[in-house]
Every structure is written in C-alpha cells, then in structure tokens.
Design a protein around this nucleic acid. Structure first.
Lengths: 201, 201
DNA sequence: GAACTTGACATACGAGACGTATGCGACCAC
DNA sequence: GTGGTCGCATACGTCTCGTATGTCAAGTTC
C-alpha cells in the first residue's frame, strides 16, 4: 500500500487544473481569483502554490493539458484522413489545419491557449510544454518536404506559419457574427494559402 | 485665446499615452503600475481615469496609436514597391507582409499589439480602432481580387490569414535565438504561402 | 509497533494595485 | 467680476497575489 501520498497529490493537482480550466475560460486569466478557484476544487491557495509555484505555473499546466488534447485530436484526424487514401499526406495536412480551426472555436481553447497563453507565457515556441500542436504540424511538414510533396521550404518556418494562420483564422471565425457561415470561408482560404507550399504538380 | 483648456488636455493625453507605451512595452500590461506610469508623465491616476475610463481604455488608445503607425508605414512601403514597377500590386502585397514582419520585431509592437492587445481587448477584428493594419491589407487584397491578380477568394478571409501569418511569423522570429538568421526564412515562407492566393499565370 | 521525520496543505500576514468618491482650483461665459 | 463648469488631484475601500508560519497525516526507522 505504498504511494497513497502521491496518489492523493495527483488527484489534487488534477482537481486544481480542472477548476483552473473553467475559471480561466470563463473569466480570463487576469480576472480569475485563485481563492475562488481553489475553493471550487475544495482546497486552498496553499495547495496551489505548493504544486505550481505561482499563478503562471498553473496556467502553464492548464495550457499544457489543452495543447496535448489538441495535438492528440489533430493526430487522430490526420491519421484518419491519410489512412483511407493511398498516402495522400497533403490531404492530411489540410485536414489537420481545418481541425485546428474548428477546435479553436471552443471558448476554452480560444481564451486560454490563444489569448492569455501567449500574453502571459510568451511566444508558444518557448513554452515549457514545447507546444505539442506545433510539433505535430512540424512532423507532417518534414515528411512532406523530404518526400517532395512540399517545396523545399524551411521546415520550422512553414510549420510556424501554417499553425499561426490556422489559429488566427479560428480567432477571426469565433469573433465574427455568424461563425457557421464564416468557418467554411476560413477553411477554404487556409487550403488555398497552404497550397503555396505544395510542389508544382 | 480660445481653447487653452482643450489644448492642455490633448497635451496631457499625449503624455499619458507616451508614458503608457513605454511602461507597457517594458513591463507588460499586467505588471505596469498606473501610479508609476502617471507619475512619469507628471500627472496622477485622476487624469488617467478621467481621460480613458480605465486601464483597458488606456491600452486601447496606445494600441490605436501603434496600429496607426504600422498601417502608415505599411502603406508607405507598399506604395514605394508598387510605384517603380508598372503596377505590380503583387510585389506590393509581399512587401507589406515583409514590412509587418520586420515591424513586429520592435519589442513595443510585439508586447503591446501582438501579445497584450488581443488578450485584454479581444480579437483585433473587433477593436475599437477597427485595426488599420487589417484595413490596409484588405484594401490591397480587394483590388487584386477584382483585377484578377488574385484568385477569387473571400476578401475578409484572405486578409485575415495574410495578416495573421505575418504577425505570427514575426512573433516566431523575435522569440528565436538569432533573429537576423531567421528573418529571411520567415519572409521567404510568407511569400511562398501568399503565392497560394495568386491566380495561376 | 512506537517515536520520529518528512512533506503536503492550511492559515495568517503584508504589500501593492485598481476603481470610486470627494475636493480643489483654473478656465470660460455672461 | 462673479458663478459655473470641468479637468485633475487626493483619500479611501476592496481585492488579490505571494510569503512565512503552523499543523497534521503518511511514511520511515529501529
């Protein structure tokens, strides 16, 4: 019966992160009170500072979780899209891009990952979690550059621009009056723009 | 001798905005103290709240000023690039994009317009100043779509994606270890990606 | 198995920072 | 010249974060 201590600790960490996700998404990082947040989780600020160091640490943990979930979903969609074709990795990239745009319509992801995240933690490329989403895109881009599907562009630059464009498009869609009407336009424009990276057939 | 009152008021507004630009750029919006900031301008918080309503209002005014400066510079560069050619508006668009990327290397613009701005004021498309930069890009895109230089893509979507990609690229360049080496890669990748919007020759 | 030690978490405290309500004094009108 | 208006300063209350200290259960050692 060893590890009852760590078990409880992980449980509390999870509860705090869950409460933080809700509070940050609803009120924004700056306006979220740590007292309320921890009370919702049935704890106090003591637990928070012990586990995450400070408020930024908590945000980093939340962003890490969300980022991981996004990357997992993108991978899943990418795999599905590339699977039933005969290795059309280009379709997979477009599908991933569209998936990012759609995922970012979730207020939780918008507010926390796209708005507060960069402002508080700095540019995504230097996040502690190292940005799983970007890594996912980079993997795809690298494979396509090496296989000649994409032009011989700088892998890091292309990944960054594709990801940035997708997430930025999502922000625009979400802020628009009628997201349902605007989304397809954003996806289409993204596909066109990404096509600039494609090797001439 | 009329308007000595308004004159002084505008002068103070300008001093506050200038002090805010410096404070926000150096410490970030959240960590900038309004007491220090106003003291630097030789005033107190009373003037600030009277002129801008609250801290967000001040940020909005600062962002508006920076955005205007950026748009003016982009217009200038775009005009120069299109001028000596025979109406090659495409080159002008690329030049504008590159200009945005370079401008965003300025810490003031990065921190205030790209990071804190969206987080505090929300998505740029719904800023009070209505985002001059975006308007500038939109103008160019619309002209090119109508003249057939660009594919018949949704103007709003294309403008948003181009702008977002450029600014995002700038964030990446600035966060990298050696900006001087990375910048050309970002500009090249941007040009390639934008080329996806270009009508097939 | 009992005393000791560790460490996760709670509580208490201090230091700002924001926003508002109130007061003052200079400009403008008549 | 007098009254009013308005821009700005001052004073206050409230909230929040971060740290320092206390406490009690879980793990450890003999």
């Amino acid at each position: 019966m060893a590890g009852k201590r760590l078990e409880k600790m992980e449980e509390n960490r999870a509860k705090l992160i869950a409460a933080a996700r809700k509070a940050f998404a609803e009120k924004g990082f700056a306006n979220a009170s740590m007292d309320e947040l921890t009370a919702d989780a049935g704890l106090t600020r003591g637990a928070l500072y012990h586990n995450f160091g400070d408020k930024r640490g908590l945000l980093a943990a939340v962003v890490d979780q969300l980022d991981g979930e996004m990357a997992a979903r993108a991978r899943e969609i990418g795999a599905k899209s590339a699977g039933h074709g005969e290795g059309d990795s280009w379709q997979a990239l477009l599908a991933e891009g569209a998936a990012y745009i759609e995922m970012a319509l979730d207020p939780e992801i918008q507010r926390i990952v796209l708005l507060d995240g960069p402002a508080v933690l700095g540019d995504p490329s230097q996040w502690p979690s190292q940005n799983s989403c970007l890594a996912e895109t980079r993997k795809g881009v690298r494979a396509m550059v090496e296989s000649g599907v994409m032009k011989p562009v700088d892998i890091e630059a292309a990944s960054r621009l594709l990801n940035g464009a997708a997430l930025n498009a999502a922000l625009w869609v979400a802020a628009s009056d009628k997201p349902a009407e605007v989304l397809p336009k954003a996806v289409e424009a993204f596909s066109l723009m990404a096509d600039g990276f494609r090797a001439k057939s």
